[in-house]
Design a protein around this nucleic acid. Sequence first.
DNA 1: GTCTATATGAAGATAGAC
DNA 2: GTCTATCTTCATATAGAC
Lengths: 191, 191
Amino acid sequence: MTTHEKTRQVRQRIVQACDDLLYHKGYNPMSFSDIAKASGIPRGNLNYHFKTKRQVLEAVIEYRLQQTRAMLDDWEQGLPTPLERLKRFARIPLNERENVSRFGCPMGSLNTELGKQQAELQAVARMQFDLFREWLTRQFRALLPHRDADALSLHLLARTQGVAVMAHVYADRSLPRREVDGLCAWLESLE
Amino acid sequence: MTTHEKTRQVRQRIVQACDDLLYHKGYNPMSFSDIAKASGIPRGNLNYHFKTKRQVLEAVIEYRLQQTRAMLDDWEQGLPTPLERLKRFARIPLNERENVSRFGCPMGSLNTELGKQQAELQAVARMQFDLFREWLTRQFRALLPHRDADALSLHLLARTQGVAVMAHVYADRSLPRREVDGLCAWLESLE
DNA sequence: GTCTATATGAAGATAGAC
DNA sequence: GTCTATCTTCATATAGAC
């Protein structure tokens, strides 16, 4: 194994640890000490791989985008109709209800935190929403060519974000069940 | 004016400044220096009025609860039917769209921040939701005695939270228009 | 009650030995 | 490339003069 490859693996281990940490603690409370502890990389050595905290965020978002792209590609391959794909998306808060009730939505809570007074960082975090928004818009366009696909996409995103927020506020693992059922019924009723 | 009254006024000035600061910056990034600057109270003197940051949060939440109770009482007085009251609530993200697009929902974003790893503080912030939830449940119960009023209340809260999150993510002042229209249409269609 | 000065700790980031 | 030691800054909170 070359030195370069080994370095890349260390970097990847840091990014994956930060992915969880960012979700579980939030950006501002997440410290380099936390990262060192979670990744097993000595505290001072982190700054060789990431000079600033912002670079850590950028790396985590890039990683998440890759994961999400792969997931959406899978759905596009495995699910034959736009309606099934949209319903698959709508079910995320239900499948993830354990995590969502404890920590909220990973991308929603991060944007909410950074959107207050850290506009440049929010712009990085917002790319996660862009990716879903565009994919959902394509599905809606295929399903309902005569309707405003982007507005429908934003509506679906808003509904799922709302479920995540309320499940998190009340640490409620049953709320996603009811809400996702209603959301899927709405999708099926569209014409 | 007695000394006691003057102290109370100073305290009130601090609380009102913190109310905005908490909304605009969030809890963790809000420092005592920020509070001193925003309220005009000398930095060191703040700790006479509030020994810890947690006490500041508790005072702000108590203040917000008072404001919200007064607002809900006004609605109950001024709006004759439960349906009108529910629609009045649903319109908040539209009326507040300038603030919501810049800072999100004051109670939603606070709960999202504190819900990650500050359970005791979140319990304080959650009381804002409890107040709305119970009031909305009463309205739904009056409107639709045969349905699950609490589930409807949580649904309406989720819908408005979702609107706030997405308007904030995209700093979008027009999204609340579309979403609130749809939400009011849903309320009117209930039976 | 008011305010200055400061104790104490933890954060992000860097310098330089190995 | 790795890691220790440390610089600097800023946070909460307190002690004590006025």
